[in-house]
Structure formats: C-alpha cells, structure tokens
C-alpha cells in the first residue's frame, strides 16, 4: 500500500485524521478529568469543574495523599500479585485451549464436528447472571471456591475466542500444512509449529481482551470470594468505588485508585499494539 497516488487529493486522509482526532478527544477528555481530579482534595472537586488539579483556593496543588491512601486501601501489593497470577494463568490456558479447539474445528475432520460447534455456540445465548449461582454451587462442590482457582477455572473456555480462532485458521493457506502432512508430521506438531505462529496477531488481540476481561472481573469475585487475601484489583477497586461514592472524603481516593488500576492496562495495550503491527509486516499472511 506504499504506492503513491499521483494527482489524487489527500482529502481522504484529512477527513480521517479529523474524525479520528475528534473522536479520540471524547475518549481522552474524561480520562484526563479523572486523572487530574485524582490529585484534588475532596472539597475542591465539587466546588469547581476544571481540567487542572486546582484546590479550593483556585491554585494548582497536587494531593499525592490520595494515591498513598488508594494504595493502602487497595492493599495494592497483595492484590496486584493475585491479579497477575489470575490474569496470566487464565489467559495462557484460555488462549492455548481455545486455539486448539479453533484449529480442530477449522482443520480437522471428526464426527459430529458441526453439531458440537453449534451446541457450543448456543452457550453465549444464556444470560450470564443466571449462571452465577449454579456455577457457584458447582465450584463449591469442586472445592475451589474462595481461592484463586475459582477465578481461573470457570473461565478457561470462551466461545468468542474459539470462534475467532476458528475464523483465523480457516483463512490460512492450506498448502503449507498439507506439505507438512505429507512429510509425516502429526496434527499436534503442525498446529504448534506451523499454524499457531501464523495466527499470532489474532492471538495477541485475543490475549489482550482475555487478559483485560480477567483483570476487570468484579461480579464473580464478589459472590465467590469471601477472604480478602484472594481479592483482585477489580474487587478491591469495586469496593473502593462503592465506598467513595458514599463517603465524601474518599471520592478523590477512589479516582486515584481507578487511575492506578487502569494505567497498567493502557500501557500493556499500547505496547501490545506495537507487537501486532510489527508481526504483520514480517512473515505474516503472504500470498
């Protein structure tokens, strides 16, 4: 796509840039407000709406206390570690198993494949709330409740991920695989050494979304975890937000907590983007 268009107006680009920039502003602006307000004192937030952290006398003042309090309130060290374990373990297992399944549905033939796939797709139609209590009962039966396991195991499979992986594998050229079959390679080796590397961009995308889904999972933690030593960031932050909207002096602490919890994700997302874009220009799907 690097061909230069001779004599074509660049209005396409201008329109794109304008629209995207305007849109981006509406996304960034609230977050900027969130970020800036997290440095203000409680009284100041309601007295004046401003994008800069002004205190009640109207001067610029950064209240770092809010961040200190947020870290203490969230019990950041333990909770961060818990979240990391849960997110990484679940994402890795999830991606691996779902890629396996997606590959099987796309490339391997076995009896009942279509029926099984259709039945599995049905499961996204069940409203999630109704599954909560039965799932809780099952987890209690399996004795994994009130531990990190209960945040990992019920989510190792995701129909969305299977579907998208299947899509990706469908679109891969078959001849490389077929050559490998001819060479006598087993299906697992083909999957691992040939097909999987080729869908890495999608893997990264799904990895990001799965990681973030795990990171922000609050409701399930609320009903399945009672002991505070297994809290994740989402749970701690959820508690902080409830407390902050009720108790005035905690409002800016709550904002600080929200910034602390969301900043790593934004960074991870930004860095992962580089990988996706980089991966596509080298050895990607070429025809």
């Amino acid at each position: 796509m690097n061909r230069k268009r001779h004599g074509r107006p660049k209005w396409n680009r201008i329109v794109s840039y304008t629209v995207l920039s305007l849109l981006a502003v509406t996304f960034v602006f609230p977050y900027l407000w969130l970020f800036s307000s997290s440095f203000r004192e409680p009284g100041a937030i309601y007295s004046s709406f401003s994008l800069l952290p002004l205190n009640s006398s109207g001067e610029l003042e950064l209240v770092w206390e809010n961040y200190k309090n947020a870290i203490a309130y969230l019990d950041l060290k333990n909770v961060f570690f818990n979240t990391l374990i849960v997110c990484v373990v679940n994402t890795v297992i999830n991606l691996f198993l779902n890629a396996l399944a997606g590959y099987a549905f796309a490339r391997l033939q076995f009896k009942g494949k279509k029926v099984i796939f259709a039945v599995i797709c049905l499961s996204i139609m069940i409203p999630g709330t109704v599954m909560t209590i039965p799932n809780l009962l099952i987890c209690r039966f399996l004795k994994i409740d009130d531990s990190l396991g209960v945040l990992i195991w019920p989510f190792i499979m995701s129909v969305y991920n299977v579907f998208l992986m299947r899509q990706q594998f469908y679109s891969l050229p078959k001849e490389v695989e077929e050559a490998a079959i001819v060479d006598g390679a087993g299906p697992f080796r083909i999957f691992f050494q040939i097909s999987l590397p080729l869908v890495t961009p999608m893997l990264v995308v799904l990895g990001i979304t799965t990681f973030m889904w795990n990171y922000n999972n609050f409701m399930w933690s609320l009903v399945s975890i009672q002991s505070s030593e297994y809290f994740t960031l989402a749970r701690s932050l959820g508690d902080l937000v409830s407390a902050g909207t009720g108790e005035a002096s905690l409002y800016p602490v709550m904002l600080a907590g929200s910034v602390i919890v969301s900043l790593p994700l934004i960074l991870v997302f930004f860095l992962a983007q580089k990988y996706i874009l980089g991966g596509l220009t080298e050895g990607g799907v070429k025809e």
Partner: peptide, 10 residues
C-alpha cells in the same frame, strides 16, 4: 480502548 480498561464503576 481507554473506556474498556477503566473500571466501569469509576
């Protein structure tokens, strides 16, 4: 992507 990563409650 910012809204997706910020806690929905916040």
């Amino acid at each position: 992507y910012i809204p997706c990563v910020t806690a929905s409650a916040a």
